[in-house]
Simulated assay, not measured.
Amino acid sequence: MSDEPRGRHSRPDDETRPIDLGGGRPLATDPEPAVAAALAVVERSLAQMANRVTRPLLDPPSQPYRLRPLGRTGLAVFPVVLDASRLGADADRSAAHRVLDAYAATGGNAVLVDDAADGGAAELVGSWLTTRRRREQTVLLARVGTASDLTAAGLNTAADRLLRRLGTDQIDVLVLADHDPATVMEETLTAVAGLRDDQRIGHLGAGDHSPERLIQARVLAGQRGLPRFEAVLPVHSLLQRAAYETGVGPVAHAQDLACLPRSPLAGGFLAAAVPTRGALRRLRELDPERAERLQPLVTRRGTRIVEAIVRIAEQRDVPAAAVALGWLLTRPHIAAPVVSATTVEQVWAATAASGVHLSRSEVTGLERASAE
Results as ranks from 00 to 15, higher is better:
residue 256 D to F: 02
residue 205 G to C: 01
residue 107 G to I: 12
residue 130 T to G: 10
residue 79 P to S: 05
residue 162 L to Y: 12
residue 293 R to W: 00
residue 263 S to P: 00
residue 201 I to L: 08
residue 147 A to H: 01
residue 242 A to Q: 03
residue 335 A to Q: 06
residue 347 V to Y: 02
residue 12 P to A: 15
residue 37 A to R: 07
residue 109 N to D: 07
residue 243 A to D: 15
residue 48 Q to P: 02
residue 229 F to S: 12
residue 111 V to H: 09
residue 201 I to W: 08
residue 329 L to F: 07
residue 207 G to A: 05
residue 139 V to I: 12
residue 270 L to P: 11
residue 112 L to Q: 15
residue 341 A to M: 12
residue 290 R to H: 03
residue 335 A to M: 05
residue 37 A to M: 09
residue 159 A to P: 01
residue 32 E to N: 09
residue 361 S to D: 15
residue 99 V to G: 07
residue 210 S to C: 06
residue 85 S to L: 05
residue 80 V to L: 14
residue 327 W to K: 14
residue 372 E to H: 01
residue 297 L to V: 01
residue 47 A to E: 14
residue 51 N to F: 08
residue 130 T to P: 01
residue 122 A to E: 01
residue 355 G to A: 11
residue 113 V to A: 09
residue 208 D to Y: 14
residue 159 A to R: 15
residue 317 D to W: 10
residue 24 G to W: 04
residue 218 R to T: 12
residue 298 V to R: 10
residue 249 G to S: 05
residue 253 H to G: 04
residue 258 A to Y: 03
residue 365 G to C: 13
residue 242 A to W: 02
residue 199 Q to S: 15
residue 93 R to A: 09
residue 234 P to Y: 13
residue 226 L to Q: 05
residue 324 A to C: 14
residue 308 A to Y: 13
residue 22 G to D: 14
residue 9 H to Q: 03
residue 69 P to L: 00
residue 273 A to S: 09
residue 296 P to F: 04
residue 80 V to Q: 11
residue 90 D to R: 00
residue 118 D to I: 02
residue 282 R to F: 06
residue 72 R to W: 00
residue 331 R to M: 11
residue 175 V to Y: 02
residue 182 A to S: 08
residue 93 R to H: 10
residue 72 R to P: 06
residue 212 E to P: 01
residue 263 S to L: 04
residue 177 A to I: 09
residue 298 V to G: 04
residue 161 R to E: 13
residue 4 E to G: 10
residue 146 T to S: 08
residue 70 L to S: 01
residue 371 A to M: 06
residue 101 D to T: 00
residue 114 D to Q: 05
residue 92 D to A: 02
residue 22 G to R: 07
residue 112 L to M: 08
residue 1 M to I: 04
residue 230 E to S: 06
residue 256 D to H: 09
residue 223 Q to F: 09
residue 248 V to E: 15
residue 264 P to W: 05
residue 181 P to Q: 00
residue 308 A to Q: 14
residue 219 V to R: 10
residue 54 T to S: 09
residue 69 P to S: 03
residue 297 L to G: 02
residue 35 V to Q: 10
residue 224 R to L: 14
residue 62 S to Y: 12
residue 314 E to C: 03
residue 290 R to Q: 11
residue 138 T to P: 06
residue 344 V to Y: 05
residue 345 E to C: 02
residue 215 I to V: 13
residue 163 L to Y: 13
residue 87 L to Q: 03
residue 190 T to Y: 14
residue 290 R to C: 01
residue 362 E to S: 12
residue 89 A to K: 11
residue 344 V to G: 02
residue 328 L to P: 10
residue 25 R to V: 12
residue 227 P to R: 14
residue 334 I to P: 10
residue 170 Q to W: 03
residue 129 L to E: 12
residue 51 N to T: 13
residue 222 G to M: 10
